[in-house]
Computed example of a mutant assay.
Amino acid sequence: MRIGVHPNNLHLRLASAWPGAFAGLDPIFVPYSEGRDTAALLESGAIHFGGTGSTPPIEADARGLGVEYVAASAPRPANGAIFVRADSNLNSIADLAGRRISLIDGSFHTYLLARSLEGEGLALADVERVESGTRDSLAELLEGRVDAWVAMSPRLEKAIGHAGLRLIVRCGATIPNRSLFWSLARIGLSAAETAGIASELARIGSEIAADPVRAARLLAENDRGGTGADAWERVVRSRDFSVVPVDAAVLAEQQEEADTLFRHGHFDRAVAIGRPPEAVK
């Protein structure tokens, strides 16, 4: 089983270093740079499943790739927020109209921004989305090159305590922000394989929660950004690592996101979210 691992999916990142993880599936962990690459790697057969935020699988379905959802994390209400400079005159989402917003576009950042704007009668078209890519979004915000920043862990925890920043929206007040573990129909995972993946993700999640110090050390050892074990431990302790098989409620959340992004013009046509894996075997 070829399992895709990118730095922002902490569950699979930890699994790739966790003793005995996915042993029953003869795992090969395939590293790659970011969640938005998952669909292309699945399409090429380079990986058999991966884990991302909620938006990349919807992007894949918008391309007609036929997503099969395998499992879902618990909601991650603490893993996203929108910041402005502390000395700016921007006090609410409504003040972002016409402003430059730094984000990873096509990730859950886009959905968080869309839902936040929608609550104020605004749309994605009312702001300028600035792809953060590999740039230093914190520096860009502090230096005034952008007006707001959609941040996520582990940089989120540092941003919350930064004297030069002010938080205006937390993720949990706006979107569920789950991790989704998914494949494509063309990969042909069996019902037994999807059940095994979900079960193993849940088992590893329980072990991570039971030993956050060990999990933090593993994350720090492989951190290219220099985040230390103490900071990673705060991230691990703030997160619910439980995982469940995908059900109708999770698919309904995905459909709501797809419909929202379509309303905002992010997609040029409506996207229909697929059925749970067991319903298509």
Score class of each variant (00 low, 15 high):
M1R: 01
M1E: 05
M1C: 07
R2T: 00
R2G: 00
H6R: 03
L12Y: 03
L14S: 01
S16N: 13
A17C: 07
P19I: 10
G20Y: 08
L25K: 11
F29H: 10
S33K: 15
E34R: 12
A40M: 12
L41K: 03
L42Y: 11
S44R: 08
S44G: 06
S44K: 09
A46G: 08
G50K: 05
G50I: 04
T52I: 04
G66S: 06
V67S: 03
E68F: 07
A72N: 08
S73H: 04
P77R: 02
A78K: 10
A81P: 10
I82E: 06
F83W: 12
V84N: 09
D87M: 08
S88F: 10
D95Q: 13
L96H: 09
G98T: 11
R100W: 03
R100E: 13
F108I: 13
T110F: 00
L113H: 04
A114V: 02
A114P: 02
R115D: 02
G119K: 11
E120I: 08
L122D: 14
L122V: 04
A123E: 13
L124C: 15
D126S: 06
V127M: 05
R129F: 07
V130F: 06
T134C: 05
D136H: 00
D136Y: 02
S137M: 06
L138H: 09
E140S: 07
L141K: 09
L142M: 05
G144S: 09
G144Y: 03
R145W: 11
V146T: 14
D147K: 11
A151Q: 00
A159H: 05
G161E: 04
G161M: 08
H162K: 07
A163P: 10
A163V: 12
G164V: 00
V169C: 02
R170E: 01
G172Y: 00
T174V: 15
I175Y: 02
R178M: 09
S179L: 11
L180D: 04
F181L: 09
F181E: 05
W182G: 06
S183I: 05
S183L: 04
A185L: 08
I187G: 12
G188K: 13
G188R: 04
S199T: 09
A202S: 07
G205N: 04
S206M: 03
E207K: 05
E207I: 02
I208N: 03
I208G: 10
P212S: 03
A216Q: 13
A216K: 02
R217H: 13
L219D: 00
L219G: 01
A220I: 04
N222E: 08
R224A: 14
D230L: 07
E233P: 10
V236N: 00
R237I: 07
S238M: 00
R239H: 06
R239N: 13
F241K: 11
F241Y: 14
V246S: 10
D247Q: 15
V250N: 00
L251R: 01
L251A: 01
Q254E: 15
Q254D: 14
Q255W: 06
F262A: 11
R263W: 00
G265N: 13
H266D: 05
F267G: 12
D268E: 09
R269M: 07
A270K: 15
A272T: 14
P277L: 15
V280Q: 14
K281H: 14
